[in-house]
């Protein structure tokens, strides 16, 4: 029996469906389009570049906003480029940070070349070895629903590797204006 892999858009919608005060950073490429497609929000910060930096940006944000939950949604290629960040995050142990990798095992933006996870490299194992107290692989929507609730418990740091199919839905593009993205995020935190 073959189990159908998850759809990235449905995953992200479900993962943030009770977001409350959740602060979200998306990694460049499809995760940014997925987050925008799930609903634009002043407390979404979309990366359009800076590959490898999403998790670390999440760490800086989580440390400065310890009472809020911070979610980083990124891709397998992006996280692999910043894989050392998993060690850096574990040293700090921010309870309010979740790193969710949408793992399609490919570099989807650049011609669907197979990524390291496609060759069997295990990000959940890497995060576990790096010291994340919670590191899970998610393959169905009921696990996504559980994770959605766990994100808001601030018992992390938590690492989620979500196996998705490698389809590329139509792009859903947020503004490219980084200054606007930064300013609206900061203003929303002050109000």
């Amino acid at each position: 029996m073959t189990v159908e892999k998850l759809n990235r858009r449905e995953v992200v919608k479900k993962l943030i469906s009770n977001r409350n005060n959740l602060l979200i950073i998306s990694g460049l490429g499809s995760p940014t389009y997925d987050l925008h497609d799930a609903g634009d929000h002043n407390q979404n910060f979309y990366l359009w570049g800076a590959m490898g930096g999403a998790a670390m940006m999440g760490l800086g944000l989580a440390l400065s906003q310890p009472k809020k939950s911070v979610l980083v949604v990124t891709g397998d290629g992006e996280q692999l480029m910043g894989v050392g960040a998993l060690a850096t995050i574990s040293v700090q142990m921010p309870k309010n940070l979740t790193i969710a990798v949408l793992d399609n095992e490919h570099f989807g933006e650049t011609g669907m070349q197979k990524s390291h996870t496609g060759y069997g490299i295990d990000l959940v194992g890497i995060a576990h070895s790096a010291g994340f107290p919670i590191s899970r692989e998610l393959t169905n929507m009921s696990e996504i629903e559980v994770a959605r609730n766990d994100i808001l418990l601030n018992n992390g740091p938590m690492f989620l590797n979500i196996k998705i199919n490698s389809q590329s839905p139509d792009r859903s593009l947020p503004t490219l204006d980084g200054v606007e993205l930064k300013n609206r995020f900061r203003v929303s935190l002050k109000s």
Partner: peptide
């Protein structure tokens, strides 16, 4: 683990104030 992590961290820190 590498200096570029710090650049991203500083940006996230300021996003949070």
């Amino acid at each position: 683990t590498t200096e570029e992590e710090g650049v991203a961290l500083c940006c996230g820190a300021w996003l949070g104030g």
